[in-house]
């Protein structure tokens, strides 16, 4: 949902696997909804890792571990690969995450997160490792994600790193504006472009 971004300070949920694909984030059988019911998608986030085939909770999975919670998901490299399903971003948002941190994101999923006001924060592999290390030491480790300053800080150690986001998207996130709002204002320019190509 459209919401303004500024500074987010939160504990994290660590998911230290690489190549987490969107089929794992939300399996295909949950894509049949015809409405954008984010609560439904959130309930089924990582469905087949959260629940065993008999429907019981998989207590070994991090989302079922009461020690870990927060608005920030921290994942291994190449997060969101595979299918373009935006349902994956809806599930992440619906569960309550506002930020995903990884050392590498798949392209389509990264756009999908941004279009749903979930901020993908790409950090260096070394910084990602230090976040995982701190969370392993203390599950209550907090991170500060400062959108105006484009920085992420591990509060317990003070270690900080800058992240990239283009000026346009940063403005959109900080002002709760989406790309369609922008494009609807461009109609005459598009028509002019079309005529120039005829």
């Amino acid at each position: 949902m459209k919401q303004k971004f500024d500074i987010i300070q939160s504990t994290c949920v660590p998911l230290p696997f690489e190549n987490i694909d969107t089929d794992q984030i939300i399996p295909a059988r949950f894509l049949k909804a015809t409405t954008n019911d984010q609560a439904f998608f959130g309930e089924n986030l990582f469905r087949d890792w959260r629940y065993r085939p008999d429907g019981s909770k998989n207590e070994d999975f991090v989302l079922n571990n009461p020690k870990f919670s927060g608005e920030i998901l921290v994942a291994g490299k190449n997060f969101g690969s595979g299918s373009s399903r935006e349902h994956a971003a809806w599930a992440i948002a619906g569960y309550g995450f506002r930020v995903v941190i990884s050392s590498f994101f798949a392209d389509i999923h990264k756009n999908n997160e941004l279009n749903n006001f979930v901020l993908p924060v790409e950090v260096s592999p070394a910084f990602l490792q230090s976040i995982f290390d701190e969370i392993a030491k203390d599950p209550k480790t907090e991170l500060k994600v400062d959108v105006p300053a484009q920085s992420v800080t591990i509060l317990s150690t003070g270690k900080s790193e800058k992240f990239q986001i283009n000026g346009y998207k940063k403005y959109c996130l900080m002002n709760a504006m989406d790309d369609i709002d922008y494009l609807l204002g461009q109609k005459s320019k598009i028509e002019a472009w079309e005529s120039s190509k005829r």
Binding site: E86, I108, N111, N112, D179, I180, L183
Partner: peptide, 10 residues
């Protein structure tokens, strides 16, 4: 190229 649903709307 493939896109998400928000982009389909665009």
């Amino acid at each position: 190229f493939g896109i998400g649903t928000s982009e389909v709307e665009m």
